[in-house]
Design a protein around this nucleic acid. Structure first.
Lengths: 138, 138
DNA sequence: GGACCCATGCAGATCACGCGACAAGCCGAT
DNA sequence: ATCGGCTTGTCGCGTGATCTGCATGGGTCC
């Protein structure tokens, strides 16, 4: 009942890029240093985020990572799901056949309902709002 | 981002007892058979539920497991937390010092808020309502 | 050509899961 | 009263998956 540290790192990385302003390009090494993430671990995370279409990467000198969209169009849900995979409270939620009781299972509805609330909550949290919340003009 | 199978088994066991009626006493072997739970695994789960005060157990012949309270006074949250421990979406939620950014962390509030919603949702789901939802008069 | 940066494969550690065995307690029969 | 059987409580072990982290290799720009 906990998100993985990978997902936590991913959120921090996106947050850092969002703070940088429009383009928000930065090498993974700097992100890792600023956000206290193991550098070689961040590389894999960024790769997954790139596949998911959340960030864009460019290799070579002056390369780096940048947001694929504006912060307000990126929410927590897709970042987490890009790393941890789809959120499933219980395995019977996406695959009803996983439960032996089939349609007779009384808890199935509760799992689905709770999961939907959770997903909805995470989906509403976009990074634009996050930045605004505590404006770090520093 | 998933509850453990232990918690799922625990919920099923409670549900089975709640279906039995008022007293709802049953040996773990029967619960295990009916709800498709590994018998030796269920023993450990029942033990934890007993410590948490959700069920009462009596040893010896004609012993078994029974609910400590009425189904409507038992909710999903305490069953899950009795098994998996407190629900923590991220480790920084219960222990703010776990996060390096301290009070400056923009996501901390989101984690807390989302977790509270989740906890509230699970806390509202009591087994009395679950039974009523799809009345299995069979 | 050289420096820089992302991408990928690989090992260690942790944890959930399930099993088994022994101990402790209770009831009923003798 | 004693014995035997039944049921839960507790503990440790092995396996498998998964998270975590590192090192190496491939690609790009100056």
């Amino acid at each position: 009942m906990q998100i993985t540290r990978q997902a936590d790192y991913a959120v921090r990385a996106i947050l850092y890029l969002a703070e940088q302003g429009d383009n928000g390009r930065a090498p993974t090494s700097r992100i890792a240093q600023e956000m206290h993430i193991p550098p070689s671990f961040l590389a894999k995370i960024v790769s997954q985020l790139s596949v998911a279409g959340v960030v864009q990467t460019s290799r070579g000198a002056r390369g780096g990572v940048s947001l694929a969209r504006e912060p307000k169009d990126i929410n927590l849900l897709e970042v987490i799901e890009a790393i941890d995979g789809p959120i499933t409270l219980n395995e019977c939620v996406p695959d009803r056949s996983a439960c032996i009781f089939g349609d007779d299972c009384p808890v199935h509805d509760i799992w689905c309902e709770t999961q939907n609330k959770l997903v909805e909550q995470l989906g509403k949290a976009d990074f634009g709002a996050l930045l605004k919340k505590n404006g770090r003009s520093s």
